[in-house]
Design a protein around this nucleic acid. Sequence first.
DNA 1: AGCACGCCGACT
DNA 2: GTCGGCGTGCTC
Length: 804
Amino acid sequence: MNLAKVIVDVPTMQTNDPYTYLIPDELSDKIQNGMRVIVPFGAGGRKIQGIVADIDHNGDFDGELKEIDGLLDLDSALNDELLSMSKWMAKKTYSFQISCILTMLPSVMRAKYEKELIINDKQDVDDEVLSLFDGANSIDFKVEDIDSTILRKIIQYRKEDKLTVRYKVNDKAKAKKVYAVKPIINSNQAQDELDKLRKNSKNLAKLLDYIINNNEVTITQRKLVNDFNIPESTIKSGIEKGWLTRFWQEEYRNPYEQEVKPNYPLKLNGDQQKAVDSISEATNNEQSDVFLLEGVTGSGKTEVYLQAIQKALENGKTALMLVPEISLTPQMVKRVKGRFGNKVAMLHSGLSSGEKYDEWRRINNGEADVVVGVRSAIFAPLNNIGIIIMDEEHEASYKQDDAPRYHTRDVAKWRCDYHNCPLVLGSATPSLESRARATKGVYKLLSLPKRINNQSLPEVRIIDMKEEIKTTGDEDFSQELLAAINNRLQKNEQIVLMLNRRGYSSFVMCRSCGFVLHCPNCDISLTLHMDSRTMKCHYCGHEEPIPNKCKNCGSKKIRYYGTGTQKVQEKLQNLVPNARILRMDVDTTRRKGAHEKILQKFGNHDADILLGTQMIAKGLDFPNVTLVGVLNADTSLDLPDFRSSERTFNLLTQVSGRAGRADKEGLVYIQTFNPDHYAIRLAQKQDYELFYRKEMSVRHQTNYPPYFFTVKITASDVNEAKAAAKMFEIQKILKAKLSDQALMLGPSPSSILKLKNKYYYQIIIKYKNEPNLSECLNYILNHYQKDAQKGLYVNIDPDPLNFM
DNA sequence: AGCACGCCGACT
DNA sequence: GTCGGCGTGCTC
């Protein structure tokens, strides 16, 4: 029998293994592994999308088989590498293979399902049902949109064959099509036509002239109109006269409007050269080594990446480079594009889904040798990879927060092993896990200790805000920082200020009864936003009007506590009335391209002060910035997460690096209520190595990564007691199946107990070596799958980044 | 996910 | 008796 194994688009544990289908004769020569197909699945003629995992033209199957309905692709959507990776990834992340496959593909390749209801004979159905159709013979419908008594009738009619339900699998993956034209007469014929033409037919003459000179070429109609100044109406008459044919042609959408200036390799210093040599040697020898490139801000990591990529390309290989959030680093994008030109494909969140699909197809068709992108770009269908680079490898955005919960670093390592090529992890402040592996010799450490041009690091001063409050009562701006701001404004130099909290005030409290306004859906206080004049929840997006009296006691003594970027902007504008202030946070950058606009404006010196949340800390490089102020360094320090020190150190180090990159000396102020905390003290000295050692000893004492591995198990339900009870059940299973060396935290409510109207309870397992662990977790998944139908979800997050 | 089947309480 | 509620199990 001619059989295909198909992974069906039904994300459950029971359907995680492939199903076998018959291949109909007419598809036999076209079907390939990794193609998307439409298959019937279950009763009632339901149709769904699937992926071909295996083909056996001479197979056997014990039992009934259905036939594949049709193909959704002309070519494989997934090559063998990605197909086998999806299997590994499903296991590793405790998720379904189909979910892994669909995250690897551009979102438009995830089919939409629709149901169509068709009347067989209008005489058969009653008026109530007939009225749904509004005169037509068929309608698209969703079960949840239809009233239950009518639905019951529909089900009855369907049983009696009076109505038919047709399932549709709608592929959204559509290439953009444009009109193209091609001459169908030769140059001589065109010359004859030109001779016959009336003298005043200027446009037709132009068209014939074009045909004489471009006889064999296909050209888009748009180009013919724009570049040759021939109107569309003329092209149409040319077609009617039989000179040209017109047809639809696929075209890639072009997301890069502006031209990028080419740039050329820079001269490397000794450390950079050594790094490039070591990496290229691994590429040449096809060794899947992992390099940790540790270099302070401004040490020229990017140039190392680019030259290592160059070497891979010279070897006939391709390269993959990952960055945290590309829209934040337009400077980086320009540099890569400028170096490698149109061999580069970009995959980032600023592209529309159509543009992403086109970039994906360019890569899949082998038209791009270098791919630059964010997390999901790790799945780019490149062949023959010679190097994978992860810039700022410590960034949390490399880990996907929802299923499949993969870490880009793990996927990258898998691909490097597959392609026998090196993985380069670059950072000024590597994650402790990576740095520890480098110490153990699992990764090879390459360091760039010197800043290019021997620029000195900026001076960092810590300001104790406890003292400041005692003397001035101001908790936002210390005297010293304010003086420095004024000084820079006078010298016409620029300033970057970071406050890691958006909105106006973080909460409102009634001074009579102490009541704090909370989100009705989440266990979190609402933040005041002055621009929209609303109270907003930063987790679920809930908004409500600003209260003028307390909802609890009716008192009008309401006060706003805590400071956000909006309030600081207002306050700062009062303190320095002539300064031009730009604010950059989630609220001002929501629109597409808003990031770039703000950064460009600041880069052109159309503003003096850039005030923003942590998004300003990353990758931007403005030579005229000589002062950086961190208004409150404690926001990230106070979080209930063992990584809060590491995050704070990273953030402070990164934002400090924004000061004084050119010939001008930089100065950094860190305002804090914890001036003696080691994360802040060591960020002041920009001493990563010492921080690494100090933090490692803390992790050692508290049994946290990198000394222990962790897994987070979460249960969520609209009913708090059910979620909690489930976690206690799971705790019992874990205790029975794991060794007594595994440490368990919980069950406990998650630090945001209630989120979007669901309650969350969690257990964290810390372990060193638990051979039974994955079997045990799979048992839990299988055991609790039926609960998911009732809305009780159990989630497993291996190596979670977020402990809250 | 979405469907069918089967078991139970409430109703003509 | 039967209708329709929901819980459970299966889909090549």
